[in-house]
């Protein structure tokens, strides 16, 4: 019966250990850890800056077919926008604090 106890212990450890890891390790709203609607999804914000200094905040919903709060999109979207930037335009990342 030891193998039964071992399998049971392993699966239960995963059931509770994985969500605990994400809860402790990540300050963001995380997947795989049952954090539904639990906190504001603070992610870096992307801002497009025109040559005349005018700023436009990037809305990620405009770039993805289906948007979810847990999505870690900043790196990917920034790389995509940089490839399309026209001369004189800049892109900045700003840390959302509240």
């Amino acid at each position: 019966m030891n193998h039964r106890k071992a399998i049971l212990s392993l699966v239960v450890a995963l059931q509770f250990g994985v969500p605990l890891y994400f809860l402790v390790a990540s300050p963001y709203l995380s997947r795989w850890s049952w954090q539904m609607y639990s906190r504001e999804p603070l992610r870096d914000q992307l801002v497009l800056i025109a040559p005349d200094g005018q700023e436009t905040q990037v809305n990620p919903r405009d770039y993805f077919g289906y948007f979810r709060r847990e999505m870690d999109y900043a790196d990917h979207l920034e790389a995509h926008l940089r490839r399309q930037l026209e001369p004189g335009w800049r892109i900045e990342r700003r840390r959302q604090t509240s």
Partner: peptide, 14 residues
Amino acid sequence: TQITAVYLFAAVSK
């Protein structure tokens, strides 16, 4: 135990 984990972490994360 799975559903217990779901409710527990849904609560603790809030």
